[in-house]
Amino acid sequence: MLAVQALTVDIRASRILDDVRLEVGERELVCLVGRNGAGKTTTLRTIMGYLRPVAGSITFRGRSLVGLRTHEIAALGVGFSPEESEIFGDLTVAENIEIATWTRTTARSAAERVERAWALFPELRAYAARGGTQLSGGERKMLSVARALALDPELLLLDEPFEGLSPAILPALSQSIAAITRLGHGVLLAESNIHHVPEHTSRLYVIERGEIIFAGKPQDAQRDATVLRIIGGTVS
């Protein structure tokens, strides 16, 4: 559903992405793994229309996303949970989630979409009436992912969804992401920590210094010496 071809992006005249190619198919969970500064966030932000590529194409369901504005891309069905969460501080938790149902209408009812978002992080429900700024860092992260899901996107872009979350809820989130793909969504997940890559990942891309250096099954990545050297498979 998403095909990124030969994507090249410069920021302030320095090359951040160089010839990045990746694909996300229906019901696929695709992980983009790389060290800090490798270009993961830039990749997602470029797909989302925040940055304009110098060269290359981004097609979503046969339609080019290059040149579209961020809100148009979101309306086409691409949900995004940014690295910094970027929740709306002046809205309550419930409003943060509902807002996504107003900006895009889909076959599912608003109530159903909100319900699915709550189901992703049941602990958020207790804070429904709380203001966005009253949330802790980890709760903001959850809300950001829940809000992206409430858009009922066909493709979900998650930038470091596990960051700042307690290890206690990581397995549950991992399973929830799997459930999202079973519902028919594609998920592209950027992650700096290889340990967080969910088991059911369909395909793994490793990015280093703006270039994709590995594409394939997660198990193969664990056997690839270059990959291991860069992202550090095990520590202990």
Binding site: R35, N36, E83, G137, E160, E163, G164, S192, N193, I194, H195, I231, G232, V235
Partner: peptide, 13 residues
């Protein structure tokens, strides 16, 4: 406060 969040395990150490 979470000085190493957002970096890979290797870099964390």
């Amino acid at each position: 406060d979470e000085p190493t969040s957002g970096v890979s395990t290797r870099d964390k150490h």
